[in-house]
Design a binder for these strands. Structure first.
Lengths: 204, 204
DNA sequence: AATATGTTTAAACACATGTTTAACACGCTT
DNA sequence: AAGCGTGTTAAACATGTGTTTAAACATATT
C-alpha cells in the first residue's frame, strides 16, 4: 500500500492483500507486479514462483497465530481463565490480521496438496489443546460434561466465521461496518455466550 | 458419480463435486468433461459457459437452504422452539448437501462480482430473520439481553464451520470421520451450547 | 578505472484453458 | 425419401498466465 522503497516488501504486502480478497487463482503475478509497482520478473527473482510466495504468506500467519494460541493455553491456571484469555488473544490476533485470516481460511477449504500438510498440523495442535483445556474444565467441575471435540469446533466456528464471513456480512444492510463497531465487544460477547453454555446449573 | 444416462445431469453432478473440493478456478472444464465422460463442448452446449454453470449450482443451493430457514423461522410459536427447529433444519440440510455447502461458502469468501449480488441477498434475509427471532426471545424474557447481530453471527459460525472446516477437521488425528460420527448429535449439541448461553440466570 | 555482484527491465517462451467451429449421427416430421 | 432439429465429437482458436531469458543498470570493492 504505502510506497515503501523495498520492492521485496512491496511484493509481499501487495500479494497478501490481493490473495486475501481474490484468492490464489484470482490473482495473477502481473496483478501483483502492477500494484506493487515492480517488474513481473521480480516476483520470481525474490520468491522463486507464485506458489512459494503464497505458501510463505500462509505459513508465517499460521505459525504466528499458533504461537499465540499455544502460549496462552499452556498456562497452568484455571481452565476458565485460560479459555477466556485464549478467546481474547485469538480474536485480537484475527483483528490485526483480518485480511490474511480470510486468505488462510479460504486456502484451507481446498484440497490443495501444497497446503494441507502444515495447515492440518497447525490446526490439529490447536484443536487438541483446546479439547484438553475443555476436558480439564469438565474434570474440575467448572463445565458441564459436553463433548470436547464438538465444543472446540463450535468455539472456533464462532470466532472464525466473524472474520471469514466478512465479504458476506459487510454486504448485509446495517452491518457494513460491523468489524469496527464490534471490535471491542466481540471477544467478550463470544466468551459470554460460550462460557454460560458451559457453566453447570449449580453454579448459577 | 453414478453413470447416469443423462449427460446434462452428469455434468451438473460432477461440476458440483469438483467445484466443492477444488474451487471454481481449481477446476477446468476439461476436468469436468473427463470425469462426467462427456465432450468438452457439451458443457458450453448445455450451460453456455463455465460461469453460468457455477452460478446455477450456487444459486439453486442458496434458494433451497434459504427456503428451509425462512420457513422454519416464519412460524408463530415460542422463539426458543423456532430457533431449535431452525438449527435442526439448517444442520440437516447442511448434512445433506455438505459438499455444496463448502462450495458456496468458499465462493462467498471472494469479492466475486458475479456472486455477491444474490449471495448477500439470501444471507442478508437469513441474518435479519435470525436477529428478529433472537430479539423476540429477549423481549419475551426468554433470553438475556445480548446483541442480536453478534449472537446471530456466532450461531451461524458454529454451524457453518462444522461443514466448511471439513477439509481441515478431517485431517486432524481422531477426527477423520467426525461428520458421520456426530451426524446425530451435532444439532442437539449446538443447540444446548447456544441456548444455555442465552438463558437468563433466573430461569435455572 | 575495472570488475564483480546484486537488482531491474522488456521481451519472449511455453502452455493451459474457455470457447467456438464445422462436421457428423440420429430421430422425427412431412 | 428429404429435411430439420437435437445431441455429440474432434479439432482449432484466441488469449491469459507463470516463468525464463538476456541485456541493462546500479553500486560497491579492489
Amino acid at each position: 500500500m504505502a510506497n515503501m522503497t523495498n520492492p521485496k516488501l512491496r511484493i509481499l504486502e501487495t500479494a497478501e492483500e490481493l490473495f486475501a480478497t481474490k484468492g490464489f487463482d484470482g490473482v495473477t503475478v502481473r496483478d501483483i507486479a502492477e500494484q506493487a509497482q515492480v517488474n513481473v520478473a521480480m516476483i520470481n527473482y525474490y520468491f522463486g514462483n507464485k506458489d512459494d510466495l503464497y505458501l510463505g504468506i500462509v505459513e508465517s500467519y499460521l505459525e504466528a497465530i499458533s504461537t499465540v494460541a499455544e502460549g496462552v493455553l499452556a498456562q497452568e491456571n484455571d481452565p476458565r481463565l485460560r479459555l477466556k484469555l485464549f478467546i481474547q488473544s485469538y480474536v485480537d490476533f484475527l483483528f490485526s490480521k483480518a485480511k490474511t485470516a480470510q486468505l488462510v481460511l479460504r486456502s484451507e477449504f481446498q484440497d490443495d496438496a501444497h497446503i494441507d500438510r502444515f495447515v492440518s498440523e497447525y490446526f490439529a495442535k490447536n484443536q487438541i489443546t483446546l479439547e484438553n483445556t475443555i476436558n480439564e474444565g469438565i474434570q474440575a467441575g467448572y463445565f458441564t460434561p459436553v463433548d470436547p471435540k464438538l465444543t472446540a469446533v463450535n468455539l472456533m466456528g464462532m470466532m472464525l466465521w466473524f472474520f471469514a464471513g466478512a465479504p458476506i456480512l459487510t454486504r448485509i444492510p446495517g452491518m457494513e461496518d460491523y468489524m469496527e463497531r464490534y471490535k471491542d465487544q466481540f471477544a467478550q460477547h463470544t466468551w459470554n455466550l460460550f462460557i454460560k453454555g458451559l457453566s453447570p446449573r449449580e453454579r448459577l
